[in-house]
């Protein structure tokens, strides 16, 4: 009988060990780290609130926040609009639906490393595809990755291209849950296409939009490999992302204490931004 009682604990014990070692301890230790300065090699040194004071005077930290904001402001609306357009198109009775869906989804499954290496070429100043198109139709070249004003928007556009396929699928699922008789009723009332979209479709797929906003926000704060490969955070730190800055402080300068402070701060920021978004969208 006692053996039977122990079985559930035996089954969940791998998770408990994992949780204690890889989640609970790191979270507590990261808070300890924020009050210390440490380069891993020499002993840890208590330095009070210095890491926090430094954080609020650190222009690179501020820059990484602004960069993330720029990314999100471009990425989120662009992602929702493009995904919605493609999903609405696929929601008609489309031939070769499977092919189109698979094509839009392809970048989602491919490594961000591959996507970044390809887009680095597309964004090339002299021979990149985009500038070739621009010069062919008589416009000037754009410094996609070398102009500080363009670098982050360029990365946001690429990220949209990479992720949008997933949201096309999610929107498509959402669109198919809207009961047909809503549209039929609207037809009887003489509603036009736009009225139907804004009065019926949009409110019905609101939960999906919320999911897209949240996932994109997390994505923006997790941006790393794209600037790491494309720009190294430049030009003029215009693509220094949150995670790239944590990485640089931790593994270039070995400031474990300060790096952990950045990590803690960004984690709290992500959670609060998501809470605010949730409140805001629930109200709508």
């Amino acid at each position: 009988m006692t053996k039977k009682k122990l079985v559930p604990y035996l089954l969940v014990s791998p998770y408990l060990i994992y949780f204690l070692v890889f989640i609970a301890f790191p979270v507590i230790f990261s808070i300890v780290l924020t009050f210390n300065s440490w380069n891993i090699i020499s002993p840890m040194k208590y330095n009070g609130l210095n890491n926090y004071i430094r954080l609020f005077h650190d222009q690179f930290f501020l820059q990484s926040l602004v960069n993330t904001l720029i990314f999100l402001v471009i990425h989120i609306p662009l992602q929702i609009i493009v995904a919605m357009l493609l999903a609405l198109a696929l929601n008609q009775k489309v031939k070769f639906l499977g092919f189109f869906r698979a094509a839009f989804f392809l970048p989602v499954i491919v490594s961000g490393v591959v996507v970044t290496i390809i887009w680095q070429q597309l964004y090339g100043f002299d021979t990149g595809l985009f500038n070739r198109i621009l010069t062919t139709i008589g416009l000037g070249r754009v410094g996609w990755l070398i102009d500080p004003a363009w670098a982050m928007p360029s990365i946001a556009i690429m990220a949209t291209w990479k992720n949008v396929g997933l949201y096309v699928i999610l929107f498509l699922v959402g669109l198919q849950t809207v009961p047909n008789h809503y549209y039929e009723a609207a037809d009887l009332e003489g509603a036009n296409k736009f009225q139907k979209f804004f009065k019926i479709t949009l409110p019905m797929i609101n939960p999906t939009i919320f999911m897209v906003v949240i996932l994109s926000t997390i994505g923006g704060f997790s941006l790393f490999i794209e600037p790491y490969i494309m720009t190294g955070g430049g030009p003029l730190n215009s693509t220094l992302s949150a995670v790239l800055y944590i990485y640089k402080q931790g593994f270039f300068f070995y400031n474990m204490g300060y790096s952990a402070t950045l990590g803690l701060f960004f984690a709290l920021l992500i959670l609060s931004v998501i809470m605010i978004q949730k409140k805001f969208i629930e109200k709508e």
Binding site: V27, S222, V243, S259, A267
Partner: peptide
Amino acid sequence: FTMTLPFQITLIPQYIL
């Protein structure tokens, strides 16, 4: 709870581990 925990917070301590 662990599902919603951003990885930014555990990255450095996990490396130290």
